[in-house]
Write a protein that binds this DNA or RNA. Sequence first.
DNA 1: GTGTCAATTGACACAGTGTAAAGCTACTCT
DNA 2: AGAGTAGCTTTACACTGTGTCAATTGACAC
Lengths: 170, 170
Amino acid sequence: MRDVAEAAGISRQAVYDHFGSRAELMVATARYGDEVRGLDERLGRYRAATGGAERLETFVEFWGNYIPEIYGIARALMAARETDEAVAAAWDDRMAVVHEACSNIVDRLHRDGTLAPEWSLEEAADLLWTMLSIRNWESLTLERGWPPSRYVARMQELTKRAFVRGSEGA
Amino acid sequence: MRDVAEAAGISRQAVYDHFGSRAELMVATARYGDEVRGLDERLGRYRAATGGAERLETFVEFWGNYIPEIYGIARALMAARETDEAVAAAWDDRMAVVHEACSNIVDRLHRDGTLAPEWSLEEAADLLWTMLSIRNWESLTLERGWPPSRYVARMQELTKRAFVRGSEGA
DNA sequence: GTGTCAATTGACACAGTGTAAAGCTACTCT
DNA sequence: AGAGTAGCTTTACACTGTGTCAATTGACAC
């Protein structure tokens, strides 16, 4: 908090006056970030895709490009989530939006008749959501050294292979 | 540390005498846990499986049953990892063992000629390792409410579908 | 009887979060 | 012009948790 105040050129107490607590400051930062980055519009572009498989591909691309932008604050939120209820709630809200998107994609695949037959709609959505988690991005790019472009490409292949019927490539 | 000391019926300082720091205590706890649970022997059983696909299935089952046993300490380690280098190193060591196993499985699939053709050996190992992360288990069981048995069954299907050539079910 | 080992008690340093009180400056409203 | 207020400052303090230090005790071995 001291560092934040210094960086902002105000006193430590002024930060508390504005945000109440460390947790609230982080949540506010995350919300502001989404706003500045135009999250809604960017999601709108993916919503344009009509076919399930196409939507899956578009979404993975959008998400794979979005994660690096929010990773800093996301990391802080994930850590604070363990001990702070308000942060946990805020985080869960944000992740619920992603789950919603996954659910929507799976529904479309199902409607197209291209959902792989072993999954129920809920299970497929849960799995897709889990596969696209920020932790997994962290694991592949930061720990295994994948460049972001590879993350997107391979994740597209993987999710397609996993959820789209008869798309097992060669 | 105070709680640990109380539970052990000794003074707080005695804990520091034995383990030096909170981080070292956690690492020692994890090592001791593996020993008590007979990690090596249990891994030995999975090593008996010869075919790649069979080994994959056996390993996912072993791992899916092992995670709930170590989840408590694993969670503590994952949290402490963020701020403590020694914990980070210990954790990375443990995860390297899992990655090794994934690599081994992928190698066998490749040798059998049953590895799905879109993956390189390294990429497949990285992906499998990421899919089997404790975070993903946490996400599916604790957050999405899957029973552990379903985790194992669906993870077996998912990894098979993703990595084994021509095994896309119906 | 001496040495040593494993504890104990009690005090303290330090970092980080959060609270409280008093005061200062600049702006707005009437 | 004067009153009120918004936004900020400084200073001090409470509380938690980790880790350190020093002096002391009890038991056991040689």
